[in-house]
Structures are given as C-alpha cells and as structure tokens.
Simulated scan of single mutants.
Amino acid sequence: MIALRTFELFEAAASLLYPPVCTLCSGKTRAGEYLCEQCEAKAMRIVAPFCQQCSEPFEGAIATAFTCANCAHRAIYFDAAVAAYRGRGIVRQIIHEFKYGHQVHLRHLVARWLCAAFDDERLRVRQFDMIVPVPLHPTRQRERGFNQASLLAELLAARVSIPCKPMLKRVRYTTTQTALDRAERMENLHNAFRLRRNSDVRGLHVLLVDDVLTTGSTLSECARVLKRAGAISVYAATAARA
C-alpha cells in the first residue's frame, strides 16, 4: 500500500510535467482523461436484451425481462450481477493493462466504467449498506502488488458514498480461472472464500465489486459466503462482462 501511495504522488507530479495523451493511440486528450474521444467511442456498452441475473447480452428481439439458460440451470447466489460494458476490444485491453501490465493509473478509467453500472435500475433503486471487494489470495496479491477489485471498490465507494470494507478473505490458492470452463471454475472456487474474523454482515444489503464478470462463479461463491453469514441481499457490479 505504501508503494501504491508513492506511485500516486509520482502520478500527480508527472501530470503537471507532461500533457495528457490517449493511452491507446497517443493522441491528444483532455486533462484527467485516459482515452481520446475516438477511442472512448469504441468501448461497447451492454444494451438490452440481456440476462437479468448475470447481464449476459443476447442478440435478437427479446422484449421482456428474462434469465439465461446458464443461470436458470445452476445455483446462483448473487441476486443480480450488473456490468455496463462488454469486455471486448479496448475495454479488455485497458483492463488487461491495468491488472497485468501494472498500469495502476488506469484504475480511474476502469472505475468510471464500473460506476456506469449504477445506470442500471437493478442497482440504481437499491440501498446498499456496504461495498465488498472480491479478495485475492495473499500469494497472488503479493505477485501483482495490488488487488484490482479493492482499488475499484474504493473509488466506487467514494463516488456513491457507501462504506467499503474487506469483509472476505481468500483462504485457498486456486489455479487461474482464465482457461477453465464454467463447471471447472465452480469446482475450482469451492470453499475458496471465508468471512474475515470479526466481520459482521448480518442484516446487511451488500454490493460485491470485481473488475470483470466471466461466468459469475467467483461472485456467486463470494455471495454464498456472505448470505450464509447473514447478509439479506448480495448484488454485484463489475466494470465489464466478458
């Protein structure tokens, strides 16, 4: 965390010395922005129709709310998971650079995409008591240097004035999820999370935060732990839907 604060000071100083340029094309952009208007326009928003449970978008003329077959035929413990953007193209590229390229400053852009999830009435009409980031295992967090979900959750919490607390911990180191299918992800994550000592979520409405929703297995397992500990409802928000 100290290293991150040092980076923030360096980031602020650099912004005074160098004019802002687009992260992707190096074209001119406005102060405080990371993409030019042309690149920003390539970020694909999720629009209806989409699954009300996991936000998976569908092609075709579906006029009524629906739940996709993947959600209907398995146990899902979150009440709904909402993402505003498709995890493709520049959105995928920016999130990848943020997580794996140590481009920590991009958290501000990714957090803006995350905040856009509150445009959706599934979140907009809710009153949440707490924001909880999806935790990384300590080994992976040491390797990466930060937990991307925590950074995004803190920025979101400041924006929407909801307390952010790390109520969960990851107690089992799991293999990377990227190459696993849905069933393998669920098995890989079983009993991987636990409520932190002295954490109390009884009677609370909780919002889980992560960077990307792929199959929903991670969010569902976290929601299962929170509900088993007494949370009334658990919704989820992510910056993108893969």
Rank of each mutant, 00 (worst) to 15 (best):
L195Y: 05
E56Y: 06
A111L: 02
F78H: 08
F128Q: 02
P49M: 03
V110S: 01
C39A: 05
R228C: 05
E56G: 01
N198G: 03
E121K: 10
R112T: 07
L16N: 10
K28N: 13
Y77V: 06
N147F: 04
R86Y: 05
S26E: 06
A63Y: 12
A63Q: 14
A61E: 14
T218H: 00
A223Y: 04
L114A: 03
Q93C: 03
T215L: 06
E121D: 14
V21H: 11
A149C: 02
P20R: 05
T64N: 13
Y18R: 13
A72G: 10
I131G: 02
R140D: 04
S26N: 09
P133F: 08
Q177T: 08
H108D: 09
A192D: 03
T139V: 15
K165T: 06
F10Y: 12
G230Q: 01
L219W: 00
C115K: 07
L155H: 07
D79C: 02
A179W: 10
A236V: 05
D210Y: 05
F66S: 11
L109N: 03
L152P: 05
V171M: 10
R30Y: 09
T139I: 14
A75L: 13
T215M: 06
I162V: 15
L151D: 07
Y173C: 12
F7S: 04
R241C: 01
Q177H: 10
R228T: 11
V134I: 15
R45L: 12
V206S: 07
R144F: 07
A14E: 12
G27M: 04
Q141N: 07
V125K: 15
L35C: 03
N70A: 15
S220R: 02
L156M: 04
A43P: 05
F58N: 05
Y77H: 15
E143L: 13
A80P: 02
Y235T: 01
Q148M: 11
R185A: 01
